[in-house]
Amino acid sequence: MPRNLDLTALRSFVAVADTGGVTKASGFLNLTQSAVSMQLKRLEEALGLSLLDRSSRSVSLTSAGEQLLSYARRMLELNDEVMSRMTDTAFEGELVLGVPHDIVYPAIPQILQRFAADFPRVRVQLLSSFTRNLKSMYGRGEIDFILTTEDGCDVGGETLSVRRLVWVGAIGGNAWRDRPLRLAFGTHCIFRTGVQRALDAVQIPWEMAVESQSDRTIEATVAADLAVHAVIEGTEPPYTEPIPHGGALPELKSQSINLYRSELATGEVAEAMAALIRQHYRAV
């Protein structure tokens, strides 16, 4: 009697092969690590073969695993094609998108609106946090796409735009003239250390005026003319403006807006999301 392979186990196997480990694959599949490991074990038992080399810290495929991977991809592609053509659920599901708070506007609302019109049955979960937090979550396989603001770009990322970092303060404010200069940055803000070093390099004394993880708290402090902040040019918060300091404050480094996309974010839906992100952020 013919035996059947478990497509769910094959999907887990492909995910582990693509991501290089059970931990990251479990995040992308929204399963526990033990569930993924159990599916892999059942697949190996069904075939009577060892598919993964577990002798080192990173997971690699055995020769049998390499051969199965090719078959598994074709089987899953055919399965997904059948489900796409024979049912009305081709574009259902969820994408998780992580974006730093300071570059949400104006692009993200436009991206979400267009994407919802094209794929009304796909849910987009938007997460807003600091770049470091987003990269950690992405590394654990919890996010499909992240945008980051960084000095450069790590392996696997794609730089969409390079923009100046500018000083911002209250509209018509004078806090930038005070010494020590009062700064408002979140503890984990990726711009914080660079700004402090730039001030130290030109011997401008400074102090932290606010310690908060709330972007709204930081924005309110700056808008009240109690401190200054730095943002990517063109993303100034409401009630603030670029500071016309005339060279009294140091120039700041340019920042890259980068896109990172998970290995498992494939197919027409993911391609459409990636295209929309590129389109809007390259125009920032």
Score class of each variant (00 low, 15 high):
232 I>S: 03
178 D>L: 09
1 M>E: 09
119 F>S: 00
116 A>N: 12
61 L>H: 10
209 A>R: 00
161 S>K: 14
63 S>R: 14
199 L>Y: 05
192 R>K: 12
52 L>N: 10
25 A>L: 07
29 L>F: 04
268 E>Q: 12
108 I>Q: 06
1 M>A: 11
227 A>T: 03
117 A>N: 09
136 S>T: 13
187 T>D: 14
194 G>H: 06
215 D>E: 10
222 V>E: 00
255 Q>H: 05
256 S>W: 07
177 R>Y: 05
158 E>Q: 15
23 T>Y: 05
4 N>C: 04
8 T>N: 10
278 R>P: 01
81 E>W: 10
242 P>F: 04
219 E>V: 13
43 L>K: 11
281 Y>C: 00
177 R>W: 01
36 V>D: 03
198 A>N: 02
48 G>L: 13
214 S>Y: 02
45 E>L: 12
95 L>S: 07
97 L>G: 03
75 M>L: 15
240 T>C: 12
277 I>R: 00
90 A>T: 08
276 L>F: 01
85 R>G: 12
171 I>N: 13
228 V>T: 03
43 L>S: 11
50 S>T: 15
279 Q>W: 06
44 E>M: 09
179 R>C: 13
130 F>M: 08
208 M>I: 10
62 T>L: 05
14 V>E: 02
71 Y>P: 02
241 E>A: 15
252 L>G: 05
266 T>S: 01
234 G>A: 00
197 R>N: 14
111 I>F: 04
17 A>E: 06
119 F>W: 10
147 L>A: 01
249 L>A: 07
256 S>C: 15
242 P>H: 07
186 G>V: 07
87 T>M: 05
78 L>D: 12
22 V>I: 15
132 R>W: 04
196 Q>N: 02
211 E>L: 10
13 F>M: 06
201 A>D: 12
283 A>Y: 01
224 A>G: 08
165 L>R: 06
234 G>Q: 01
70 S>K: 13
192 R>A: 01
208 M>Q: 11
193 T>L: 03
11 R>F: 08
63 S>K: 14
1 M>V: 08
260 Y>L: 11
152 G>C: 06
20 G>R: 08
157 G>F: 14
207 E>A: 11
126 L>W: 09
96 V>S: 08
93 G>Q: 12
